[in-house]
Design a protein around this nucleic acid. Structure first.
Length: 229
DNA sequence: GCGACAG
DNA sequence: ATCTTGTCGC
């Protein structure tokens, strides 16, 4: 398993991190359709922590978009590169996630993040960072609405409602399972919101969360246990 | 000014 | 995120 060091020049303060967000945000692309759903490869990334030992493990799992079977997997271990600060999650997870993506034996295709892209207090969440830094198409699928407001979508699977920051639609609440709490989809890089939602729906034939994040979550937890034991 | 707040 | 038993249900 790859071992990651905190990159030289990595932001050390919230002030510096926000400055980096502002810089990278200039390069985000939100008007490309992105790859069609159920086509090519889709990669889930997730991270698990052991704050006691200052250890973080990231996993990247590549699925075939058509049948959701696992095509490839990779993990990376690192040290915690930033404290958890709401709005600055990316700086905590990204170095190790990048290493896991680099360790893959194939192209990731669309990357699905556990968190937000555009739906972010400063419009530049984890999925946005990852997209701009890699050039890959990315989307964010989060389990919570953070500070945003939304009307409950219709009961049937596939129902959506806007996720709003004041008047702006920054993402969508998407019902992936009938009658179950929705997930919160937003655009990362090089994918439109419509296609981001279409992908999220295609990735949730059975469970509330996308197969990509379920697979990545299981893998990074297992890898953390093994790295810590 | 004080909380709330993706993971 | 993480700390954690049993329990209800497919």
């Amino acid at each position: 398993m790859t071992t990651v060091r905190i990159p030289a020049g990595w932001p050390a303060t919230e002030e510096q991190a926000r400055a980096v967000q502002d810089e990278l945000r200039e390069r985000v692309v939100t008007d490309e359709p992105g790859p069609p759903p159920r086509t090519g490869q889709v990669t889930g990334v997730d991270v698990a922590y052991d704050d006691e030992r200052d250890v973080v493990v990231a996993a990247a799992v590549v699925l075939d978009a058509a049948d959701l079977t696992v095509v490839a997997e990779a993990t990376a271990v690192g040290t915690v590169s930033f404290p958890y600060v709401p709005g600055l999650l990316a700086f905590r997870e990204i170095p190790t996630v990048l290493a896991a993506l680099d360790a893959l034996p194939c192209r990731p295709g669309l990357v699905v993040c556990d968190g937000y892209g555009l739906a972010h207090p400063r419009r530049f969440g984890l999925a946005s960072h990852l997209g701009v830094l890699t050039g890959l198409p990315t989307i964010g699928v989060a389990k919570n609405p953070f500070t945003f407001t939304y009307d409950d979508p219709g009961i049937p699977r596939g129902s959506v409602s806007p996720l709003r920051a004041d008047a702006d639609e920054v993402g969508r609440a998407l019902r992936t399972r009938e009658g179950v709490k929705p997930v919160f989809v937003s655009v990362g890089h090089r994918v439109t919101l419509d296609n981001a939602c279409a992908h999220a729906l295609a990735l949730t034939p059975e469970y509330r969360l996308p197969e990509t994040t379920r697979r990545a979550d299981a893998l990074c937890r297992r890898a953390l246990r093994e790295a810590t034991a």
